[in-house]
């Protein structure tokens, strides 16, 4: 079957198996291997991408269900020679070790900062109308992204650093 996707601003028509996940389409059909497969079951977050601006686990998305959708992957955030503020902060704060979960952490953090800016509360928000970016908020909202190297405190330092740069 065929599905049309816009990935990082470029439109692709992909022919695929009906069982194909968006993750495998990105990696194996479009060669965008920055998005990683850690569990294939929506448990680790390594495959996080933006789907029409919202973060999703691409391993839980069937390609066939996303005809016409817009996807942003880590490749659409920044290349080594022109990194985003968040990517630079991850490098500066050593917000990773092996690097395997890192694209997912960065995609997830990119969306999370937007969610807080838009006033979307979480389970730990003190103010349900105007949540603030605190370490506790980040810990709660980033918990779908596992990091076995356990760079967690440094990941959150990096996110906080990038958020300050933006402000």
């Amino acid at each position: 079957m065929k599905t049309t996707l816009t990935v990082n601003g470029t439109q692709h028509e992909v022919g695929h198996d009906p069982r194909r996940t968006l993750l495998d389409t990105l990696r194996d059909d479009l060669g965008l291997t920055g998005t990683k497969k850690g569990c294939d079951h929506g448990q680790c977050g390594a495959c996080t991408v933006l789907l029409n601006g919202e973060r999703v686990n691409s391993c839980l998305c069937l390609t066939a269900m996303h005809d016409g959708d817009e996807i942003t992957t880590i490749e659409g955030i920044g290349a080594p020679e022109r990194l985003s503020a968040l990517q630079r902060a991850f490098v500066e704060r050593d917000g990773f070790q092996c690097g395997y979960c890192t694209p997912g952490q960065i995609m997830s953090a990119t969306a999370m900062l937007k969610e807080i800016a838009e006033g979307s509360p979480s389970y730990v928000s003190d103010d349900l109308d105007a949540p603030k970016l605190s370490d506790g908020e980040m810990a709660e909202r980033m918990s779908g992204n596992l990091c076995r190297c356990s760079a967690y405190p440094l990941i959150r330092e990096a996110i906080a650093m990038a958020a300050e740069v933006k402000e």
Binding site: G31, G34, V91
Partner: peptide
């Protein structure tokens, strides 16, 4: 010092085994 491999890791350009298709 920052990791020299850092920019590749944060941009999805570091090539892990399954990426070398």
């Amino acid at each position: 010092m920052n990791r020299p491999d850092g920019p590749r890791k944060v941009s999805g350009q570091a090539c892990y085994t399954a990426d070398a298709v």
